[in-house]
Computed example of a mutant assay.
Amino acid sequence: MHIIDIFRFENGLIIEHWDNIQTIKNKDLISDLSIKVLNKNSTKNNKNLIKKYIHDKIIKDNSYIKNHMILAEGEFVLSVSEIKQSNINFALYELFYIDNSKIKKVWKIKEKILEKKNWQNNNSKF
């Protein structure tokens, strides 16, 4: 299972949590590259690069419904989007690794969004 977790903290406590989980046979894990943020000064530019990339992707690809958030620190940018494929809605988390203003690597985790009646709480994937 491959998982991307997002936590929001307030006063040192976790107050919100989102995740996406997918079984992936491909062994292309993030472990093949250092996950240490080396250039925090690049955060804003990298986030803007992915905002433009996602905006252009949504315009060109009719499976994209909405981008819900983009989070970034240094070379790493996470895009959280909603897509529709074969009449099924999915949450798509795409983690980008940016080097010298170019997308060098992307990891994608796609999970089906359950019907609201099957949710365990009132929160959504976003």
Score class of each variant (00 low, 15 high):
N87R: 11
Q85C: 00
K57T: 07
K40A: 10
F90C: 00
I98P: 01
I14G: 04
K44Q: 13
G12W: 06
L95I: 00
Q22P: 02
T23Y: 08
N26T: 08
N41T: 09
N48V: 00
H55F: 15
E10F: 05
K104M: 09
S86F: 10
S86A: 09
N87M: 02
H17K: 15
Y97L: 01
N45S: 14
N39Y: 15
I24L: 05
I6L: 12
D5I: 06
F96C: 03
K104F: 12
T23I: 07
Q22C: 03
K51S: 08
F96W: 04
I103E: 11
V37S: 09
Y93A: 04
H55V: 04
I83F: 05
E94A: 04
I30Y: 09
D5M: 02
I6Q: 15
N11T: 04
S81E: 10
M69L: 13
I65C: 05
K25N: 14
V80R: 10
K27F: 07
I35M: 10
M69P: 02
F76S: 03
R8W: 13
D61T: 06
E82C: 00
N39M: 13
Y93M: 06
H17G: 05
N62H: 11
K47W: 10
S31G: 03
Y64E: 09
H17D: 14
W18Q: 15
D99H: 13
S79E: 06
Y97D: 05
L38E: 14
K25Y: 14
N48T: 10
N67F: 08
T43D: 14
A72C: 06
I35E: 11
V77T: 05
Q22V: 00
F76Y: 08
N41R: 13
I59T: 08
Y64D: 09
K57V: 03
W18K: 14
L29H: 15
Y64N: 05
K66M: 10
F90W: 13
K36D: 11
I15T: 10
K27S: 11
K66E: 15
I83C: 02
D19S: 15
I50P: 01
L92E: 15
S86D: 12
Y93R: 08
D32V: 01
S81R: 01
K40W: 07
F7H: 12
K52F: 05
N45I: 06
D32S: 06
N62I: 07
